[in-house]
Design a protein around this nucleic acid. Structure first.
Lengths: 250, 250
DNA sequence: TTATGATGTTACAAACTGTTACACGATTTC
DNA sequence: GAAATCGTGTAACAGTTTGTAACATCATAA
């Protein structure tokens, strides 16, 4: 199946790749028109036929599932530059709604797959994206599995801060695009517990409310310490100690 | 960057791919020797330099992270045929230990990446694998975020059943390779809660103990009903209703 | 067989989070 | 501009899950 220029399929692919010379994911979507979503509007629903991949150009999107009794679980928030809809299944595995007004561009799954398959530049980028997504999912599992309400809140604020600062140091102010209910459904808490915990953090002077949907980081160091993921590596030492079990002081 | 046979890199890659004609992930590892892990032995640790990708040939592996206070979160169990160590980072993002005696085969990351990059057969398979992993991670987030202890247990047993039956219908008996503590750390519960919940399911006649590490499915229908993920799609209807919000009866 | 340690089970009190109810302010609607 | 609605904050109470401890069971070795 793999061949050289004598295979017309490869030759065509090569030519296709030469024309726009796609080097970034963003360029892939550059020919698509921008579409607008109002606040609260849905982009697609769990179970819909998955025909497109989307790139977010502006705004914040929430990804969620609904289970029995109407319980909602938000599995992620997506910001400008992120992509949604990646999957091999024929239906979307989750729903997507606009948290704020949102602008997206879309590509058919086929166009996307062809572009990836024909671009040795794009493939590692896609792989990298998926790995990052997987790492984020695992961190979220840790949060939901073993962290207290306070640790969840602090972790969430730290994540938002890092995302807004773009990998540099923490910003002074953290913007919350989403409602308390969205936060609760993302953190596996109720809205009341979110409220209580936020109040406690404010009373302890760790954050200061700045309008209804933003916080100033008064003590960013404290916030980091309260995330609960310190010292992960502390006792992971000599790999030569083969039969060591994880220490579990229960 | 994309070219035809005039590019020696591609030509070499083509030749390399022609020799073994790699069509499945399994074949990729077929030249590597099998390595053995004893029960409880570690394969790698979170923070180690990530130099290899592993394929599990036999046995069960647990993937986990440790956070502050020694709290452990098992993010997954891996069985024969699964791969571990996929990531773009230079260090492993989690630890891997043998739950049962395990056999693995390894490939350097570079060898793996080259093989993927040079095989249009393997790429979709890898993509598919990663998508499945992502879907499983999201299901796990739902479980950890909003399911009760009983729902978690039932979901876990169903998952094990499906894995053991190989996508066909539920088997009569479900084998538990792991300890109660492992189950607890995977389901976000304590070992006591796991015990109590298992006892309840037995008393209600839904499962029947079959030795210490296996259950017979007396009422598989009941078990499925208790998973808590029914009716996810029930009100996901007309995509034309654009501004519909998810119903959230709180 | 008996001893020993690891693993699993059960009971009870305690803690955290969820539930319910109501108050407040901002925005929208009429 | 008043009323209704929505999102949010606060409080008392209830409930599930946890933590602690004791006990039971199993596997292995003496």
């Amino acid at each position: 199946m793999f061949s050289t220029a004598s295979n017309p399929k490869v030759a065509i692919a090569a030519m296709a790749a030469m024309k726009p010379q796609l080097a970034t994911m963003d360029e892939l979507f550059s020919t698509s028109p921008r579409e607008t979503l109002e606040m609260g509007e849905g982009l697609f629903w769990e179970g819909d036929r998955a025909q497109h991949i989307f790139e977010i150009t502006e705004g914040v999107l929430r990804i969620f599932k609904i289970i029995a009794d109407g319980r909602r679980v938000i599995t992620g928030f997506l910001y400008a530059g992120d992509m949604v809809g990646l999957s091999l299944k024929n239906v979307y595995l989750y729903s997507a709604e606009a948290v704020t007004p949102v602008k997206v561009r879309r590509l058919t799954r086929k166009a996307f797959q062809d572009a990836i398959e024909n671009s040795p530049e794009l493939r590692p980028q896609l792989f990298s994206l998926m790995c990052d997504e997987m790492a984020a999912a695992q961190d979220q599992m840790v949060l939901l599995s073993r962290k207290s309400a306070e640790e969840r809140l602090c972790s969430f604020l730290m994540m938002l801060g890092q995302r807004q600062s773009g990998q540099t140091q923490m910003p002074k102010t953290i913007q919350l695009a989403m409602s308390r209910q969205d936060m609760a459904d993302y953190l596996g808490l109720t809205i009341e517990t979110v409220s209580r915990t936020v109040t406690k953090l404010i009373q302890r002077g760790i954050i200061t409310p700045n309008g209804r949907h933003a916080f100033d980081l008064t003590k960013p160091g404290k916030l980091l310490a309260l995330c609960g993921d310190g010292d992960s590596y502390e006792d992971v030492g000599d790999p030569a100690v083969k039969t060591r079990q994880a220490v579990w002081p229960h």
